[in-house]
């Protein structure tokens, strides 16, 4: 009998996971596993790099090479891994705070370079591991442990940030829209270039409770109401889009060359010059 994908690609000895009941991270993780399976990449040639935060524990449970790094820096570590060995398929699992706050610069610079990394942002709108403080993706007005009067900071749109910085594959889905989440992650992995998948997920224990959003199931069930597809969004006015989360593929472009491929050409040229000198 064929082994189940979870048995093949996960470390069952590391389960149960450390996430709270109802946390959306598990859904994102299983979407990554299924996406990897769908792309058929070599299990021995994949490296999953994570930062610090709830989401960054995801690679504890996967059976690939795993690099659990420092807060905000996984994309920078991953850049070194990918650059040193471009044959490796490098996937970054990170959170909203990890990737757009403390690691914001690494995020936009890697996007600008268009280096072939697949970044999955577990976007739960707050810092879960430290107990639920506001992050750069917390909606205005939302309550967190450090915005008890309501958040006054406008939120980053992770996809627009990635697109504006030069990412060549950008998509967003939610823990409700799992099939498209899997599809986008798989596309990101096969895409040659910097890919960002903004995976909207739920933190019922902290963000959900303080904002009265109900338990995990209820938060997941709320996504269809809160989201609008990118196709439909094009037909709506700004007012109609207010407070809506747009889901779908934002960018899927092969117009810009990938960084390690460009560097490979530099090596070729430099070595030719060196040979000419001799």
């Amino acid at each position: 009998m064929e082994q189940h994908v979870f048995d093949r690609l996960m470390r069952d000895d590391k389960l149960p996971h450390m996430w709270c009941r109802g946390c959306g991270n598990g859904i994102v993780l299983q979407s990554i596993i299924r996406a990897i399976d769908r792309t058929g990449i070599d299990q021995d040639k994949a490296v999953i790099v994570s930062g610090v935060g709830c989401s960054s524990r995801a690679n504890n449970y996967t059976d690939f090479c795993g690099l659990h790094t420092t807060h905000g820096r996984p994309i920078a570590f991953a850049t070194g891994v990918k650059m040193a060995n471009p044959e490796l398929q490098v996937i970054v699992v990170t959170g909203d705070g990890d990737s757009t706050s403390i690691g914001g610069n690494h995020f936009i610079q890697a996007a600008r370079r268009n280096i072939d990394l697949t970044v999955v942002v577990f976007n739960n709108s707050n810092y879960g591991m430290t107990g639920g403080q506001y992050s750069p993706t917390t909606p205005v007005g939302a309550f967190t442990r450090t915005s008890v009067y309501g958040n006054i900071e406008p939120a980053f749109d992770v996809c627009r940030l990635a697109e504006g910085s030069g990412a060549t594959y950008v998509a967003r889905s939610t823990t409700y829209h799992v099939q498209s989440l899997i599809k986008y992650i798989a596309s990101g992995i096969t895409h040659k270039g910097f890919s960002v998948i903004d995976a909207m997920c739920d933190c019922p224990t902290l963000f959900g409770r303080i904002n009265g959003l109900g338990d995990g199931a209820k938060m997941i069930a709320a996504w269809p109401e809160k989201t609008v597809s990118i196709e439909k969004a094009g037909t709506l006015s700004a007012d109609e889009l207010e407070e809506k989360v747009i889901i779908g593929e934002f960018v899927n472009s092969s117009r810009r060359s990938e960084y390690t491929e460009k560097y490979a050409r530099i090596i070729e040229e430099a070595q030719r010059e060196r040979a000419d000198l001799k």
Binding site: V49, L67, T69, T70, G72, R73, A76, F77, A78, T79, G80, V81, K82, M83, A84, N105, H106, Q109, Y263, I266, I267, E269, A270, Q271, E273, R274
Partner: peptide, 25 residues
């Protein structure tokens, strides 16, 4: 690159040290 090696100019020193460690792994 003349010897097949790689040079990367990172966005800051945090990233530089991170990339060095990633490359070593």
């Amino acid at each position: 690159p003349k010897y097949g090696g790689k040079y990367m100019q990172m966005e800051d020193e945090l990233a530089s040290m991170a990339a060095v460690i990633g490359a070593s792994f």
